[in-house]
């Protein structure tokens, strides 16, 4: 039984989104989470560009030798997808830079371990950690991080 073409396209777009979302939720390693985000974005972009497709149509470029009766596909979604791809690139690059800094500061990229460390760090910063040091907080940075914690970081 032949599979209709549109089913294939839609399955591709939705499959990418599903794989991406499952991967983001199930992965522990933050870099994998980021890769899965890229996959899901690709799926979204694919669905968007599919919204401009027309059967028996050609690319929307006027060349002067277009046969009579042949139409062109919708150029608008193509422009939109171009925009959204570039947005994705910018965000991913920023995320990778953050990953590099996080790996250097915490020594790991494991999501669960990092979440626990983040809670500790924030409690410390907000002055409600269980082992609050007795230093008097002052001025604009009320709670300087204790020096001891920075040293246990792996290079």
């Amino acid at each position: 039984m032949p599979i209709p073409l549109d089913t294939l396209f839609f399955a591709g777009a939705l499959g990418l989104v599903a794989i991406g979302v499952v991967g983001m939720l199930a992965s522990r390693h933050l870099f994998r989470v980021l890769l899965c985000l890229g996959l899901a974005e690709a799926g979204g972009n694919l669905l968007l560009v599919l919204s401009g497709y027309r059967w028996d149509s050609v690319a929307p470029i006027l060349t002067g030798d277009l046969p009579v009766g042949v139409s062109m596909v919708d150029p608008v979604p193509q422009a939109l997808v171009l925009t959204s791809i570039v947005i994705g690139v910018g965000m991913e690059a920023l995320a990778v830079a953050l990953l590099i800094r996080i790996r250097r500061a915490y020594g790991t990229l494991d999501g669960h371990a990092l979440l626990a460390r983040l809670r500790e760090d924030l409690d410390e910063r907000l002055g409600v950690a269980p082992d609050r040091s007795e230093d008097l907080p002052k001025g604009h940075a009320p709670f300087p991080a204790p020096a001891a914690k920075e040293q246990e970081v792996n290079p």
Binding site: F10, L47, S51
Partner: peptide, 28 residues
């Protein structure tokens, strides 16, 4: 997995009814 499966199912149901290849193309 349940959440993602639900999302995929929802999208699949929605997409099955989309007018592929015959979109309105109002702007286009």
């Amino acid at each position: 997995l349940l959440f993602a499966g639900g999302l995929a199912f929802l999208l699949a149901v929605l997409v099955a009814k989309l007018p592929f290849g015959e979109t309105p193309m109002v702007l286009g």
